[in-house]
Amino acid sequence: MSTGVKNQLRVCALSVKYNIMREMLNKVTFLTNTCFMMLNNAAFIIQWLILFRLKGDIGGYTMREVMLLWGIACCSFGLSHLLFAGVFSLPELIIGGRLDPFLVQPKSVLLGVMTSSTRISAMGDLAYGVLVMCVFCFSVKRFLLFLLFTVTGAAIITAFALLMGSLCFWFVRGDVFGNYMVNAMVSFFTYPDGIFNGTARFLLYLVIPVGMAVWMPVHVMMEFDAGALFSVVGFAAGLSAVATAAFYRGLRRYASGNLMEARV
């Protein structure tokens, strides 16, 4: 690995570390945010317990698969928001012309933006995802796959948010459309793919990539399929490359807001 890449990774790691340390300054707020986010997610167990009491199989999923779905969704969402929360604020930075501080740094602009903030409640999501996985369907092989799919899921969520956020370089109200697309992805995350069919299913696999982020990983974890695994990894890598290219292409159109502000 070249020194440049090593330095870049070190800067990113330090940025994330200091973001987390800043958020943890107030211990009570940190703990309540983490614990309540876990409770917040756990509330949905009631919903599924009731639904499965009415019918044992929903869209081809049992309680175990739904919990696995929740595990991957929470961990992917948590990892993405813990490490790269800055990408979700990209539209505001572009519209407000506030990318200047990142442009003058002697490091990657994109990684600088992505690692510029963290959402501390994402710790609760991460912890909840791992807990659910271990309680409902633990096996060593499944856990290793779970870790891999957490990374690919986080990459897909981050890349999709980056792609949608980058629309603001071209469209004035691109932020509204982008936010709805990202929120739509999160809304579909925790429902079985079996209840959707036809065009909706196609759109949810390839346009709003819910299927590749969580549904296909659940299928692979329940019944191993090497082809599907490589499809997920390939899709995550491909989407990340496309989103990165879109960001740098759009960056050429960026206009500074000439805003004078102190970043502490």
Binding site: L51, L54, K55, I58, G59, V176, Y180, N183, A184, S187, F188, Y191, G194, I195, F196, A200
Partner: peptide, 20 residues
């Protein structure tokens, strides 16, 4: 513009209750 979110939620529950 928030209608999009409402539409998505209702669409999900429509599909969910249809399968129930």
């Amino acid at each position: 513009m928030g209608f999009v979110s409402y539409f998505i939620i209702i669409y999900i529950f429509l599909k969910l209750w249809n399968s129930m």
